[in-house]
Design a protein around this nucleic acid. Structure first.
Lengths: 240, 240
DNA sequence: CGCTCGGTTGACCGATCTCAAACTTAGTGG
DNA sequence: CCACTAAGTTTGAGATCGGTCAACCGAGCG
């Protein structure tokens, strides 16, 4: 059975059987990691490309004052930048959140895959564009949305991404993020995040509990968030 | 005399004479635009790649409530994403800030340049990685830095970028951004930004005046910002 | 069974926003 | 060359959002 990386790429561009086989063999060497394990740290020299096959992973940065900012979440199927190898050092760290299975693809292998297989190249580029769009959405959230809107917006994003890869069972889904981690993503205090979550719960929009999120009133949540699902979807060009 | 785009790419990867010639001809069709002119708007179908040759340009997003968030600044030599063409529509707009000269490179031309010229491909990938690093730094700023730190940090970033392309005359440089625009970049109110600028002026670190920034005490500014210039520099790998 | 980690709550404080007005500069037309 | 205007900047007063500090709670685990 094909892994989540292949499944994702197939959703982003048409993929020939040869290409699928090539991806199979490239990701064959997957490794398991425990939760909270740094795959690579800020300042390290970049190595191979990481591909998350199972579990959740995040990118983050720690500031001199000790605070942390989470920069992105990687879910099964997601990979980190294909060309990192060109940089002298990482400007951020990457860490598992849950126990995770991660494959690594060496730079030469990656180059080879991209040049030899146009479908793979195309899918990887689209994936990268989507990731960039997500970053822009985060900047927008942090800059111009009130805390409750920010929380709601992130939940919408994570829900849609989970659903896209078949990890959501309609009204709810597994969300293995502590409130501390969420606060570090949203640029707020855990205390304040907790109050916002309470407000969202009382408003009947959603309810976060031990590792899963229940979206009781999707429309209300979307409305609070000012969420435009377009930023994750329908962005693929119909015509090539 | 070569243009700012070529100059920038030459700084990011070794460039063969043929490659320079190819870039010359690709950017020959530059066009002039007045200030505040949208090059492309959110929702539009992406077209060619934009390359800024002269002037300042920004990416931005407007929210339903009417507020605006600036997502990035493009200075002479900067280009926007090479593969935008793969998306169905823009998730943000791009607008000139000052009068600007912008070249456009059609997708086929771009593909051709990249596949035929490894030096160009490499330089473009590095440029993209740097842009992504900048976005991550913005997210970090918005999430975890106090307003005065954010302002100082952005000024450091812009100063270094200007200096890199020869647009800074040591203690000062041309900064054609209104306070409103800066506020929209930093996720704050123009009123509050103005107060922060006053604080920075009184502290003797820097002074912003009509279109130029004077950095009176670089060390102090860097210290206030918690600026790590590594995120823009020294990231190129020595070894290929 | 007690410890530890994460979540929850309260009281208080301070940073940032809002609203509103004055002022400054650059550009425009008479 | 001088109103006049529009855009941008500056300042004040008061309100609000989100942060800080501190205590308590509850579940999982050795």
């Amino acid at each position: 059975m094909e892994n989540s990386f292949i499944a994702k790429l197939k959703g982003l561009a048409p993929m020939a059987p040869v290409e699928i086989a090539a991806l199979e063999s490239a990701t064959a060497s997957a490794q398991s990691f425990s939760a909270r394990h740094d795959l690579i740290r800020e300042g390290d020299r970049p190595g191979p490309v990481f591909v998350v096959l199972e579990g959740w992973v995040c990118r983050y940065k720690v500031l001199p004052n000790g605070t942390r900012q989470v920069l992105a979440y990687l879910m099964p199927g997601d990979a980190c930048d294909l060309h990192v190898g060109l940089l002298a050092e990482m400007d951020h760290s990457i860490q598992t959140i849950t126990p995770a299975v991660v494959a690594t693809i060496e730079r030469e292998m990656m180059d080879d895959l991209m040049t030899r297989h146009p479908g793979i190249a195309r899918a990887m580029y689209v994936a990268q564009l989507i990731d960039e769009g997500t970053m822009r959405a985060w900047i927008t959230s942090m800059g111009r949305r009130a805390s409750i809107e920010r929380v709601a917006h992130l939940m919408c994003e994570l829900y849609l991404r989970a659903r896209n890869i078949g990890l959501a069972s309609e009204p709810q889904f597994t969300l293995p993020l502590s409130q501390l981690m969420l606060a570090d993503s949203l640029g707020m205090t855990p205390v304040h995040l907790n109050r916002v979550l309470k407000e969202l719960r009382l408003s009947g929009a959603m309810k976060l509990e031990r590792g899963r999120l229940l979206i009781s009133d999707p429309n209300r949540l979307i409305q609070i968030a000012g969420f435009d699902e377009n930023y994750l979807h329908r962005r693929l060009r119909r015509a090539g």
